[in-house]
């Protein structure tokens, strides 16, 4: 059952993300990316990371992608649909990335043999620790330092984005 859902989500993710990188219309690509994020949040739920799943929907789909759509519409993106979409070397890129994908696939799907580190653990170890309370308390105690740095990072990004995107600064 779980496996079935996983395959469903995985197929959705791969299909939608392939479309994202091949579509010529930016808006369509953005909407497909939203779809990808939904499937991903489904995968997170399956992995017992329900908080992360909700954050994925709330921040990625509800926040970042709206920002994307907004900017795309501001930038008059329809013009670019008619232009050439791919680099000349794209064929080369496809070949290289296919080789890379095959390699990763082979290594990763080598199964347990490729992961001697896990031999001490059973495959069903996952205790699904993704509940909000545990995550919250670990974030504010053990991970306090990265948390604070992340807050500064967000402040930096906010100020930077405003400075760059503001139309005119009155002088």
């Amino acid at each position: 059952m779980e496996l079935l859902f996983f395959y469903l989500f995985a197929a959705g993710i791969i299909g939608a993300s392939l479309l994202v990188v091949t579509r010529s219309n930016v808006i369509h690509a953005a909407l497909l990316l939203v779809l990808t994020f939904f499937f991903m949040s489904g995968v997170f739920v399956l992995a017992g990371a329900e908080f992360l799943a909700v954050v994925q929907v709330l921040l990625y789909a509800g926040g970042i992608m709206v920002l994307y759509l907004f900017s795309i519409m501001l930038m008059n993106a329809e013009v670019s649909v008619r232009l050439r979409q791919f680099h000349r070397q794209s064929f080369f890129t496809i070949v290289v990335s296919l080789i890379l994908a095959a390699e990763i696939w082979w290594k990763v799907l080598g199964g347990g043999a490729a992961y001697p580190a896990f031999k001490g653990f059973s495959w069903t170890l996952g205790t699904t620790p993704g509940n909000v309370e545990a995550l919250g308390s670990i974030l504010y105690t053990k991970y306090l330092f990265p948390f604070e740095v992340a807050s500064i990072l967000l402040l930096a990004a906010m100020i930077g984005a405003i400075v760059l995107a503001k139309r005119t600064i009155d002088r």
């Binding site: 740095v149 500064i152 990072l153 930096a156 400075v163 760059l164």
Partner: peptide, 8 residues
């Protein structure tokens, strides 16, 4: 943090 500030 460093990179994002430098992009700006």
């Amino acid at each position: 943090t460093m990179s994002i500030s430098s992009y700006v």
